[in-house]
Amino acid sequence: GPREVTMKKGDILTLLNSTNKDWWKVEVNDRQGFVPAAYVKKLDSGTGKELVLALYDYQ
């Protein structure tokens, strides 16, 4: 199956793709996968990378 990404509340993840309104593709610890968009919030990183903050645990 697809590689699952797990996250804990407060984690910072790299946002790869947010074109789908329900599932965003993120990368964390060299793993890529989809997380519910409602579970993360975009951060203003000030760099080229888009980052998101995990609002809830997800696994």
Rank of each mutant, 00 (worst) to 15 (best):
A54W: 03
N29M: 08
G46V: 13
R3H: 14
N20K: 05
V26W: 02
R31P: 01
V35I: 08
V40T: 03
A54G: 02
L53N: 02
D11Q: 12
L16P: 01
Y39V: 05
L55V: 06
L16H: 03
L16W: 03
Q59P: 15
G33S: 06
W24E: 00
N17A: 09
I12H: 04
L51F: 10
T47W: 09
V52D: 00
V28L: 15
G1T: 13
A54S: 04
Y39C: 11
Y39T: 05
S18Q: 09
M7P: 00
M7Y: 04
S45T: 14
K9N: 03
L15C: 04
V5H: 04
K25S: 07
K9T: 06
K49Q: 12
Y58K: 01
L51M: 11
D44Q: 12
W23F: 06
G1C: 15
S45K: 09
A54K: 00
K41V: 14
L13S: 02
Q59G: 12
K49P: 14
T47P: 13
L15A: 01
D22G: 08
D57Q: 04
L16N: 02
K8M: 08
V28G: 07
G33A: 11
V52L: 08
L13F: 06
K21G: 07
G1Y: 13
I12N: 02
P2I: 13
K42W: 07
A37I: 04
E50T: 14
E27N: 05
V28W: 10
V52Q: 00
L51C: 08
Y56W: 08
K21I: 07
S18I: 06
T6L: 11
G1R: 13
T47G: 14
N17R: 06
K8R: 13
K49R: 12
G46N: 13
L16G: 01
E50L: 13
R31E: 08
R31W: 14
Y56E: 10
P2C: 15
A38Q: 10
G48D: 13
N20S: 08
N17M: 07
Y39D: 02
V28N: 13
K21Y: 06
A38K: 14
W24Q: 01
R3C: 15
D57V: 03
E4Y: 15
E4K: 14
V40M: 06
T6Q: 11
L13T: 01
W23T: 02
V52W: 05
E4Q: 14
V40S: 01
Y39H: 05
D30E: 11
D30G: 15
L15W: 02
D22T: 14
K41D: 06
G33C: 12
V40W: 03
V28S: 12
W23L: 04
G48W: 06
E50K: 11
W23S: 02
K41I: 13
Q59I: 12
G1A: 12
G48C: 06
G10H: 03
Y39I: 07
E4T: 15
L55G: 00
Q59M: 11
V28I: 15
G1V: 11
N29D: 12
P2A: 13
V28T: 10
K42D: 03
G10P: 01
L16K: 04
K8W: 07
F34V: 05
